[in-house]
Design a protein around this nucleic acid. Structure first.
Lengths: 142, 142
DNA sequence: AAAATATATGCAACTTACTTGCAATTAGAA
DNA sequence: TTCTAATTGCAAGTAAGTTGCATATATTTT
């Protein structure tokens, strides 16, 4: 998967380039997965205040740099929202409780899903599967 | 839409039939839609403590009487999970911020969605559309 | 039908994710 | 380099949801 450049991305979104924003965005781009504010704080707590991370994440979401992932966890979950990471379904394992990213669904299938919905203007679709992941199946933790 | 009987449902799930559980379940069955703990409390606060509602809802979920709806609201959302209310997609309007229930998706389409997912044992699918509902479109609140 | 017992409830206090106010700091413009 | 507006960090605050414990109540046992 290709990667974006943190500083360029900030500039292109007309955001001031601060040390904190760069560090946070570099980490998000570098790790390419689902994250929480606390998962960022764990790695950056020597350099950035927790409140700052909340505020930066909020701004990143507004600017479309990241998107919130639909989930029922207590902590909000996010993922990078650049062209290299198109909207895709997620899988929540009920044994290890992990949330995995899956391959994007074909446009055709998305169209089929939307066909019934005439009363609404659809802008976005979230799909989440629930079940047991391969690792947990193999470990007989069912 | 057919309706269940609150007391029978409690007995069939081997739950003690208390006044509080009956009141809560009757309201859930009677209103047939998405609800939060606080929406129940607003209507029942003279008769039931908030903590009791939290505990009853938690038990109802464990027993499969209700299911949690996947959403990014601060308050958890639930819906009745009986045979009269099969799993179905939801629509979240970004203008009025309401969450609507949609018709269930055909088994065929669900199968197509699952086809790519070989590494996982799928038990459940949540689909949520985001966009603008008819009412808000008509009101030009876009 | 009454007593026993196991479970449910209500209240108070707690936890935790997230937010807000405000003074100090810093990025980018002038 | 100076100025100004935006950002940050700290302290304190919210609000959804949880826990401990004494009291009350549904169901079982006698």
């Amino acid at each position: 998967m290709d990667k974006c450049n943190a500083k360029n991305l900030l500039v292109s979104k007309k955001l001031k380039v601060t040390k904190q924003r760069q560090l946070i965005l570099e980490r998000i781009i570098g790790r390419q997965g689902i994250f929480t504010v606390n998962s960022l704080y764990t790695k950056l707590e020597d350099e950035i205040d927790l409140v700052t991370i909340y505020r930066v994440i909020s701004i990143f979401e507004e600017k479309g740099i990241i998107r919130e992932v639909l989930s029922n966890y207590e902590e909000k979950r996010y993922e990078l929202a650049c062209i290299h990471n198109p909207v895709h379904p997620h899988f929540n394992c009920s044994v290890c409780n992990e949330l995995f990213c899956l391959e994007a669904v074909s446009d055709n299938l998305i169209k089929l899903l939307q066909e019934n919905i005439s009363d609404y203007l659809v802008k976005d679709i979230s799909i989440q599967f629930k079940g047991i992941c391969k690792k947990c199946l193999e470990n007989n933790l069912t």
